[in-house]
Structure formats: structure tokens, C-alpha cells
């Protein structure tokens, strides 16, 4: 097999979980007056991902499943470079486009059309690239004349549609998609998934976080299940969804 496009090795991420955090000067001064000089006292480490390793190869469509709070989104933020690992390494050999939130930076007072430019700029598009994708966004989002109205009057579904239409035009060879499809009606969700699948078929590598076993079984070639901050399953999609259903239905939190 070819070289992995993303290599995650022994990745561990802990957050500081403060029992009483000196978030203000008053707090800090009170502690000092009590004779507690160590500002790090009361800090507890809270491990979100523990020794997770996997490789993702070019052209794969990997689904990541896990219960709420298992560490899926943290993993995506680590891969996309928003967080830095506590220990372990992440090596990415291609440009990664994270779709963690649809419509990042949307401003309610601007029109949908203006927000396309704003959102595209935030996602890293240049001027020419944005101008080139505007027609396809107008078509995919199906907003019609509404596109010239301020988006504060849009429904959440319309917002999702607009955000997704911009995001799917990212040219990066790797796409990280985080549960963004939870919004929007069923028809739109199917349309988005179909679009993502189409991008996969055109040679992109996709990492998808979802709670939908159907989507995983239908599109993914591989599934990773995360539970209690560890990777508990890595294999074909069918086995992954079975494992996920096991976790969700037999072992309630």
C-alpha cells in the first residue's frame, strides 16, 4: 500500500481541568493571601484521547464513531492543527480542510451572497477561487433570490445549506467532516452525503464523524470507534457499526 496521508502515532491529549481556576485577579489574590502560592494547584489533568494510533491512506473514506464525549471532535481538532497534542505525533502529508462548523464567520446582517465571500475567505479560499465557485454555490444551495437578503432571516436549514455549499468546494485532498450534517432536513442530509461520496470518488480522502450507522455502512470503507478516550475498533464498516451499537445500547453511561 502507498504511504499514509495522515499518520497518527500514540496520540494523547489532556486538558487542564481546574478544580478552582484562578481565572480572575481577585481569585488569584485571594489564593495568594491564603498562602497558596502555586498557581497550578487545583489543576487536574483530564485525558480526552489516550494513546490513539492509526494511519489513513489516500483515497480512503473513514468513518469515526463514538458516544458523546468520547473524544471524536478533539481528534479532528488535533488533526486539523487547532489543538496541539500533549504527547504523540500527527503527521499530515497533504493539505487538510476541516469542516468542523458550517458557515464559520457568517454575519447575520450581511446578505447570503456577501457571506459566501466571507466564509470562503475564512476557509482559506483566495479571491479568484471564490469568484470561480460562486455559480456552483448558488446552484447547490437552492436559495434563489433569497441569497441577496440578510441571512438573519434565514432558517437554520437554509444557513446549513449555504455553509455546506461553500465548504464542499474546498479543493484540499483531505476533508475532515464533523457531524455538520446533523442540521438540515433529511433530503438535504442525503444530498450532502451524496456530494461527499462524489468527492471521495473523485479521489479525495474523507474522514467523517457521524452518529449514523447507515451513513457509515453505506459510504465508508473503514470505521474507527472511540470509547473512553481509546480506540476500541478499527476495521471494516459493518463491524464498526456493530461495535458502536453494542456500546450505545448495552452499556448506557
Amino acid at each position: 500500500m502507498s504511504e499514509p496521508i495522515i499518520e497518527v502515532k500514540n496520540l494523547t491529549k489532556s486538558f487542564d481541568h481546574w478544580m478552582d481556576q484562578p481565572h480572575s485577579f481577585k481569585n488569584l489574590l485571594m489564593r495568594i493571601s491564603k498562602g497558596e502560592w502555586n498557581p497550578f494547584k487545583g489543576r487536574k489533568q483530564f485525558t480526552v484521547l489516550n494513546d490513539v494510533s492509526f494511519d489513513i491512506y489516500p483515497g480512503e473514506f473513514v468513518g469515526i464513531m463514538g458516544r458523546n464525549g468520547a473524544g471524536k471532535s478533539t481528534l479532528l481538532k488535533l488533526i486539523s492543527g487547532i489543538y496541539t497534542p500533549t504527547s504523540g505525533t500527527i503527521e499530515a502529508r497533504a493539505i487538510i480542510a476541516p469542516l468542523i462548523e458550517l458557515g464559520a464567520g457568517f454575519h447575520p446582517d450581511l446578505s447570503g451572497y456577501e457571506n459566501i465571500f466571507l466564509n470562503a475567505a475564512i476557509l482559506g479560499f483566495g479571491k479568484k477561487a471564490t469568484e470561480a465557485i460562486v455559480p456552483s454555490i448558488l446552484e447547490f444551495s437552492e436559495l434563489g433570490e433569497q441569497i441577496y437578503k440578510p441571512i438573519r432571516n434565514y432558517s437554520s436549514g437554509m444557513l446549513a445549506r449555504l455553509g455546506f455549499s461553500v465548504a464542499i468546494n474546498l479543493e484540499a485532498p483531505v476533508l475532515l467532516v464533523d457531524e455538520i450534517l446533523a442540521v438540515g432536513d433529511a433530503g438535504f442530509q442525503l444530498k450532502c452525503l451524496a456530494k461527499i461520496d462524489e468527492m471521495h470518488k473523485s479521489g479525495r480522502t474523507i474522514v467523517l464523524i457521524t452518529h449514523s450507522p447507515e451513513a457509515i455502512e453505506r459510504y465508508c470503507s473503514r470505521c474507527i470507534v472511540i470509547e473512553n478516550s481509546r480506540k476500541v475498533y478499527d476495521g471494516d464498516a459493518k463491524g464498526g457499526t456493530a461495535r458502536y451499537k453494542d456500546l450505545v445500547f448495552t452499556d448506557p453511561l
Partner: peptide, 18 residues
């Protein structure tokens, strides 16, 4: 530049548009 241009535009518009 494109990002700065768009975000500055957003700021100016949103501050005073209404």
C-alpha cells in the same frame, strides 16, 4: 489579504449598517 479584506468589510458593515 482576501480574508482581511472580507473581514474588515464585515466589521465596517456590521457596525454601521443598521
Amino acid at each position: 489579504k482576501f480574508l482581511v479584506y472580507n473581514m474588515v468589510g464585515r466589521n465596517i458593515k456590521s457596525k454601521y449598517d443598521r
